[in-house]
């Protein structure tokens, strides 16, 4: 039997090659990001939003871009009816970790493009660049972990997109708040202590979600003995 890491890598590569061929997730997330950032730049031409407001707007755009991009990685198995094939071939934990890895990569790419666009078009000043990078990295991992958990939970459900919204809301709200808390410091408001606390909270959230995911996938997808 192969190691769980070999299986995880196989699933990860499968997800990336599938996404590379269709580019549906990245195109949808990228298009949304561009439209949202351009709209915000137009809306704020003569306004000077506070760093907290800037952090809030940025986090919300990233959150929605992730919500458009990431659940597909899990829910597509349901829509294509390939979940049975996946269950017959892969260990549930490896399926989760491989897909979660692909989600992470996609959201990191999306967050990088989005932050460049946002900084360029909104003219926001970055006073603490390392905090921006750290907050983006941790928020991306947390978003990937949370949306992967949501993806596993709702796979197989009849109204999965509605259920995804209902399950996702309580999981996404606290991390959105924490992310804004860290980003506002990067944009020049708040204290370093508060920002680091928010960043730690976000990181712990990601760790909790990541450790819970494989067990949840096992409970949901394991073949019946």
């Amino acid at each position: 039997m192969p190691s769980i890491w070999a299986e995880t890598l196989a699933i990860f590569i499968k997800e990336l090659s599938t996404e590379w061929r269709s580019r549906q997730g990245l195109l949808a997330g990228g298009l949304f990001s561009v439209v949202a950032v351009v709209a915000m730049a137009f809306a704020g031409v003569n306004a000077r939003p506070t760093p907290t407001l800037q952090a809030g707007m940025f986090t919300i755009v990233l959150l929605f871009a992730a919500c458009i991009t990431l659940p597909r990685v899990f829910l597509i198995e349901d829509e294509q009816r390939t979940l049975d094939l996946l269950r017959l071939l892969a260990r549930p934990e490896a399926a989760f970790l491989g897909k979660y890895g692909a989600c992470k990569l996609q959201i990191i790419v999306t967050a990088t493009i989005l932050s460049c666009l946002y900084v360029f078009l909104s003219g926001v000043s970055i006073t603490i660049p390392w905090m921006l990078v750290a907050a983006l990295a941790v928020e991306s991992v947390t978003l990937a972990a949370t949306l992967s958990i949501v993806g596993v939970l709702v796979s197989g459900a009849r109204n999965r997109w509605v259920l995804a919204a209902a399950v996702g809301l309580p999981l996404l709200l606290p991390q959105t708040t924490l992310s804004i808390g860290a980003l506002r410091f990067a944009f020049g408001e708040g204290t370093q202590t508060a920002a680091l606390q928010n960043l730690s909270g976000l990181g712990l959230f990601a760790i909790a979600m990541t450790s819970f995911g494989p067990a949840l996938a096992n409970a949901m997808w394991k073949l019946e003995r």
């Binding site: 299986e7 196989a10 499968k14 090659s17 599938t18 294509q80 390939t82 049975d84 892969a90």
Partner: peptide
């Protein structure tokens, strides 16, 4: 009949993926 395949993967990729996952 109702066991769906990955539409974006080739037959070769399906067989290689299955072999890797089963070791």
């Amino acid at each position: 009949l109702d066991l769906a395949l990955y539409p974006d993967l080739t037959a070769d990729e399906h067989l290689v993926l299955a072999a890797k996952l089963r070791g």
